[in-house]
Simulated scan of single mutants.
Amino acid sequence: MSYIYGANGAGKSYFCKIIRQIQSIILLSPILASGNTQLIDSLPLKELSSEIPTFRFSKAYEDSPTLFGISLMHKSVSYTYEFSIKNGIIISERLQKKFRRTETILERVSPSYLDISLKSELSSFLPNISVVKEDVLCLSMAAFLNNSLANELVSAIREIKVLNMATIKAGFNISEEAFSRDRIVKYLKVLQKADPTMDDLEVSFKDKKVERQKFSQDDFENREVIRETAKLSIESSHKIFLNGEVVDYVKMPFLQTESSGTIKLFIILPHLFEILETGGTLVLDEIENGLHPILVKELISLFNNQKTNPNNSQLICTSHDLTLIEDGVRRDQVWIICKNDMGVSSIKRVSKLLSMRGKVNLKQKYIEGAFGKIPQNFFKQ
């Protein structure tokens, strides 16, 4: 469980967007390698291939490539993957693994595949290295051609779910399995904290559409890009009381009668429980948006409870709500993003900023500016 704080405009949402951008470039690489211009120009892939802007507040960065990086644990081994890109061209790429010692197993120092070196588990991809073009990632192509480690790492990165509570919509990337009877029972336990009269839910999919587009006209394996959209029809059942006793039930259209906060709570629950059941990672921007603080803490408690989170799923959330870190939160779980006078954002863990030992009121220290007054103290080394 990690909490990310920072002032408005400090870069919290961009932290989330960067993860999405990394996923997009990884997804796009095999499609670019296919040379299918029709597919590349189609939506949503056209958006993924848009030019990556450089840092706008410094002349020094106008002609510099943009560097992306991500670290993750996989099978008790730490991996750090990074690549730089400029005008759609991959300038460099590196993958390092750390288990007792650090080893670089992918090193790319130019757009050409001739300047790529592979070691260890990635060595088996060497006979196919020529498929790596100047605008595609080597790791993506190794995964595409079934190198085991590359496939596992690419899958782990792509499966990170990144959502914004301010813009999430009902039915977004949700399958019918998300509303099985078992799941509905789990959702109800949370929703009843917002609306204690709620007794049951019935969910059905309406106006379901599936769009298919061939990956390539001469593709031997006949691969397709499949996009699915659907509208949800939700009916909630509520208790009717007489003298404090339940005497009947009434069904109501959920999306028309419930509060916006309860609806938003319902929309996020399938995503949360999918992560909890699979042991994945959810990055949630503005976790408190539209929700009462008690409900936000209820969502967080799902990840902090071994019973509801048996697979050690991870939640990373951005927030302005300091009550979330009042009690029982370690300082290494809290991150601060600040922007200096030149528009440069930096993120640091509170455990690196706060040297004092013993129990500390993180909320109060944040308000007092102990983690760096923006921008002067934060950027002192």
Rank of each mutant, 00 (worst) to 15 (best):
L354R: 08
I184P: 01
K359S: 08
K186R: 12
A194G: 14
V350K: 03
T323D: 14
T80Y: 15
G88Q: 03
I240E: 11
T229Q: 10
E152Y: 06
E62H: 14
D327Q: 12
K251G: 11
E286F: 06
L191N: 06
L149A: 13
I89G: 02
S112P: 09
I18Y: 02
I85Q: 07
F68W: 01
L269I: 05
S78W: 10
I157E: 08
I226V: 14
S236F: 08
S237P: 02
D285I: 01
C317K: 06
D321V: 05
N243I: 03
I226M: 11
E326L: 12
K264I: 01
F220G: 00
K75H: 14
G35M: 06
N361Y: 15
E121G: 06
I316H: 06
K339S: 01
L122C: 10
D248F: 03
E202H: 12
N377F: 12
I90F: 02
K189F: 05
D182S: 14
I91H: 14
E224F: 09
K363R: 15
S24K: 13
E245H: 12
I234D: 07
L255T: 14
A156V: 00
T308A: 06
V136C: 15
R101S: 09
R223T: 01
L122H: 11
G328I: 02
T104R: 05
S148V: 13
S34M: 08
M252C: 08
D41F: 04
C338W: 03
